Simulated scan of single mutants.
Amino acid sequence: MFLKKVILLRENIASFKHYPFSIPSINSLYQIEFKSNVTFFVGENGSGKSTLLEAIADKCNFNTAGGGRNNIYKVHASESALGDYIRLSWMPKITNGFFLRAESFYHFATHIDDVDDTGFRDYGGSSLHRQSHGEAFLSLFLNRFRGKAIYLLDEPESALSPSI
């Protein structure tokens, strides 16, 4: 386990009346301590799960539109409104990882098509656009997610359908 704690820097916040500080879960946040290797944020739409994951990704220097440190591309309105107001506590500090943002995964896949020169080695040997949505997610999980790293997954279930 690497990320130990997220601390909201409340003393740096001028007002809790505006987004993202008006979100009840953020408004009441002081710190979150992580005590296991896997943590699920659960709540209704608008409860702050994505906002917090995006802020953590921002502090990790991951692309907040989705990707890792080396994935440099822009998507409208992908900046973190909360990132400057949190502090992360690590043990040990890990710089490798990935932020999966399901809502902008298409843009990530396009970015990879533009820059990949390895034959899509980290994505199962095929462009993510040449796979179904679910296959592309699984290719990412199976081929890119390995080693000591932090993986931030925002709505990873969106491309997956259970069999009945």
Score class of each variant (00 low, 15 high):
residue 1 M to W: 10
residue 1 M to C: 07
residue 3 L to S: 02
residue 3 L to W: 08
residue 4 K to D: 00
residue 5 K to A: 02
residue 7 I to R: 09
residue 7 I to W: 04
residue 8 L to M: 02
residue 9 L to Q: 12
residue 10 R to D: 06
residue 12 N to D: 15
residue 13 I to G: 09
residue 13 I to N: 12
residue 14 A to C: 07
residue 15 S to Q: 11
residue 16 F to M: 11
residue 17 K to R: 13
residue 17 K to F: 06
residue 20 P to I: 00
residue 21 F to C: 06
residue 22 S to W: 03
residue 24 P to C: 05
residue 25 S to I: 03
residue 26 I to A: 01
residue 31 Q to P: 00
residue 32 I to F: 03
residue 33 E to A: 04
residue 36 S to N: 15
residue 36 S to G: 13
residue 37 N to K: 15
residue 39 T to P: 08
residue 39 T to I: 10
residue 41 F to M: 03
residue 42 V to L: 12
residue 44 E to T: 06
residue 44 E to H: 05
residue 44 E to F: 01
residue 45 N to T: 08
residue 46 G to N: 00
residue 47 S to F: 01
residue 49 K to W: 01
residue 51 T to F: 00
residue 51 T to G: 03
residue 53 L to Y: 04
residue 55 A to V: 02
residue 56 I to D: 14
residue 59 K to H: 11
residue 59 K to I: 05
residue 60 C to P: 01
residue 60 C to W: 05
residue 61 N to D: 14
residue 63 N to V: 07
residue 63 N to T: 09
residue 65 A to Y: 10
residue 66 G to P: 03
residue 66 G to S: 05
residue 68 G to R: 07
residue 68 G to F: 07
residue 69 R to Q: 12
residue 69 R to K: 13
residue 71 N to K: 13
residue 71 N to L: 06
residue 72 I to A: 04
residue 73 Y to N: 07
residue 73 Y to R: 11
residue 75 V to A: 08
residue 77 A to L: 08
residue 78 S to L: 03
residue 80 S to H: 04
residue 80 S to P: 06
residue 80 S to K: 02
residue 81 A to M: 03
residue 82 L to N: 11
residue 83 G to R: 05
residue 84 D to Y: 07
residue 90 W to Y: 12
residue 92 P to W: 03
residue 93 K to Y: 13
residue 95 T to H: 12
residue 97 G to M: 06
residue 98 F to A: 04
residue 99 F to I: 01
residue 101 R to C: 10
residue 101 R to Y: 10
residue 104 S to Q: 07
residue 104 S to T: 14
residue 104 S to R: 13
residue 105 F to N: 04
residue 105 F to W: 05
residue 106 Y to V: 05
residue 106 Y to F: 10
residue 107 H to M: 07
residue 108 F to E: 02
residue 110 T to C: 11
residue 111 H to V: 00
residue 111 H to Q: 04
residue 113 D to L: 09
residue 113 D to Q: 15
residue 114 D to T: 14
residue 114 D to A: 13
residue 115 V to S: 09
residue 115 V to R: 14
residue 116 D to F: 14
residue 117 D to V: 14
residue 117 D to H: 15
residue 118 T to C: 06
residue 118 T to Q: 13
residue 119 G to M: 02
residue 120 F to E: 09
residue 120 F to Y: 15
residue 120 F to V: 05
residue 120 F to I: 03
residue 120 F to M: 07
residue 121 R to Q: 13
residue 122 D to P: 08
residue 123 Y to V: 08
residue 125 G to P: 01
residue 128 L to T: 06
residue 128 L to K: 13
residue 132 S to Q: 15
residue 133 H to R: 15
residue 134 G to L: 13
residue 135 E to Y: 13
residue 135 E to I: 11
residue 136 A to L: 12
residue 136 A to I: 11
residue 137 F to L: 11
residue 141 F to H: 12
residue 142 L to P: 04
residue 142 L to R: 15
residue 143 N to G: 08
residue 147 G to W: 09
residue 148 K to C: 09
residue 150 I to G: 08
residue 151 Y to V: 07
residue 151 Y to Q: 04
residue 152 L to N: 00
residue 153 L to H: 01
residue 153 L to E: 06
residue 155 E to S: 04
residue 155 E to K: 00
residue 156 P to C: 01
residue 156 P to Y: 05
residue 161 S to R: 15
residue 161 S to A: 12
residue 162 P to L: 10
residue 163 S to I: 14
